[in-house]
Amino acid sequence: MGSRGRGRGGGLSFTHEQLQSFGINRGENTATTLAPPPLFPKLEAKPLPLNCDAATDYMVIVKDQFIEYLHESPAYVKPNTRTDGIERYSDKYKQLALDAKRGKVLDCVWENMPAELRPQANRIRITSRKRKLDDANVLSKKLQTLEKKETLDENNATENKDENTVKKENENEDDEELEDEEEQEYEIDEGTDYANNYFDNGEDYDEEDDNLDDGPVY
């Protein structure tokens, strides 16, 4: 309705007057270029020269020194050496130089690092946490309290047989308490197991798993 049938583009095309108001005259908008723009377009204006005073010189030198220091230090993580299969005379010396550097560990404040980044993280981790129920005394105490609770419940049951509803609520609460305790213990145990398992350092991640999972095929 709105587009008075002029052109297929609907409202997208401009009228002659509109084009003129953009500064495009008749015949000027036909210059379509099909070639992609150049990868490195020519600079229209030469950039201003950088000021090169003594301060800049100093900063450039300091920067290079800092980078050089970092490259020599263990902070610069080197890739494993790739060989192209050709044995060279200089290989031995290169290897020696590499080994000398590789042995070094970055000098950090290890307390400020997460445990998994500290050296020998795996060995530190083997700490057995005592299970609560291993101790015989604690176990017997626990059992006694449970027994007491049971007898109490029974007493309650014989005394007020009529008020079934109230008693049931009580029982429910007790049950819940018991369940809660059990759940807590369960959770703690789960926690240690989980942590221990997790800290298998993952190096042999996809070496054996695949074979185990598949099982025999008949």
């Binding site: 950090c108 690092m113 997460p114 980044l117 800290f199």
Partner: peptide, 24 residues
């Protein structure tokens, strides 16, 4: 691990405990 040590050392990477609390 080596890279993370470097990054943490120069304060380029921060860390916080994840839900598991023993890993970051």
């Amino acid at each position: 691990v080596d890279s993370l040590r470097t990054l943490v050392k120069f304060d380029l990477v921060s860390f916080e405990p994840s839900f598991n609390e023993v890993v970051a």
